[in-house]
Write a protein that binds this DNA or RNA. Sequence first.
DNA 1: GGACGGTGAAACTTCAGGTTGCCTC
DNA 2: GAAGTTTCACCGTCC
Length: 520
Amino acid sequence: MQTPIPQLTRDSTINLVLDTLAKKKQALVFVNSKRSAEKQAEDLSKKTKLESHELKVLAEQLQSVLDKPTHQCERLALCVKQGVAFHHAGLASKQKEIIEEQFRKGTIKVICCTPTLAYGLDLPAFRSIIRDVKRYGHRGMDFIPVLDYLQMAGRAGRPKFDAWGEAILLADTEPEADDLLERYIQGEPEEIFSKLAVEPVLRTYILSLIAARFVRTRSEIMEFFGRTFWAHQFEDVDKLAAIIDKMLRLLQEWEFVQKAEGEFAPASEVSDPPYRATFLGQRVAELYLDPLTAHQLRKAMTRGAEEKVTGIFPWLHILSRTLEMRPLSGVRQKEYELVSQKLALAESTLLEREPSSFDPEYDSYLEAVKLAMILEEWCEERDEEFILETYNIRPGELRTKLSRLDWLLYACHELAHILQFNDLLKEIRKARIRAKYGVKEELLSLIRLEGIGRMRARILWRNSIKDLGDVKNVEQKRLADLLGAKLASSLKKQVGEDVQGDGKLDQYALPAEKAGKNNE
DNA sequence: GGACGGTGAAACTTCAGGTTGCCTC
DNA sequence: GAAGTTTCACCGTCC
């Protein structure tokens, strides 16, 4: 390094950032956990002395993106007032958006982040400071791959503004510095391995290839995969064939794929009969659902219909058990009691039996109970702060899970339709709306109105306006007192038109206008 | 003497990320 | 495995 960095504090990350600011430049600081990102941002914000009116306004904007700010929002606002932000998957997406935009504009000078910002996002800075090179993995702390380092280092230097950029790796000691130099700067990036070999991916691909009639026979399937990067790496053709055969067997067993045999198959194809997707398999492929998930859901629905399961929790649990919901957040020590209690209470209604506590699956089963609890809390109108405090699930993480839940519920609905579980259809639709808006069942009617979310629906309900009829009958002035004149007039218009239409609304249809309403 | 507050060592807890599907009368 | 947080013992100060 040409000029030494002034050692203004004992924290070398802070020193580097302060030096960057003195140069009128921006910095990204990469750390290995969400908690660290927040802490580092907070420590930095105490030193930057950047407060301005612009930042104050920005901080207020960031703090109020949710119905009710969580302490995460407040913490972010405090940092941003000093020109520093933290950025990780736990932020509300609106907050991430604003931070990225304001960093590009130069209002925010420093972002402390987890590797989120290294991938996909085009957010360069003069300095890319890589504080942590170790990350928690399967075997405790491990060095991050060279590829990850390169991604982070690659954020340094803004092509339009800077002639160069600086990527800085932090080491505490000389030997460590030597090690990092060798490992990352002189080191070769890891080889890239095909992800196709992962069973869920393979299952999904084979089914969609057959459903799209891109391939028909086993030999065509083999030929297709033989040309992939995966096969190129795999080399062992026999083993490859064995894996594909196993997948084909499963897809048949689950009735997503059929072998055309006997009279349907031309003589030439007797030894290599064509496969075709069943109607069900076709739909599973269209939904991009992992066939295993579709199979799990089918089993669960069969059971749910037989046992006349009621309530939303068993469904939330079975959906939390799918691969699509992974990774699950672990059950923390202090949550263990709470989750176990819930499991004991709900066990008899759950659609998948509790494994023995010695079973390796037990942990993930319990984690699914935890996720189902969180989703249920949301559907019971608990706010983000409660969920963050109780389960350590941040708003951004909650949103991700909710959006997957919505997709899975939709998929469930489609499967139930095809498999003629007609009694379930209405329940699934209700669950989908409840999850989407985070409301109890009693608000389903009000939530349909444009301009009405969970907060306003609850206000109406508390004031004895409990369904569309009530909205129609109540005086407009009263509505205006509760929700403002503009919305009151809109509501009156909505119920007026609707009620005139056919006299009764389909209570569980999703209002089209509200589809894009959530401020994600 | 006791309440309070500051300090630091020890014990304890937790740990990155994200794409698919519908639909707008 | 290590950072960050919580707990707790210890000590000094003030009333």
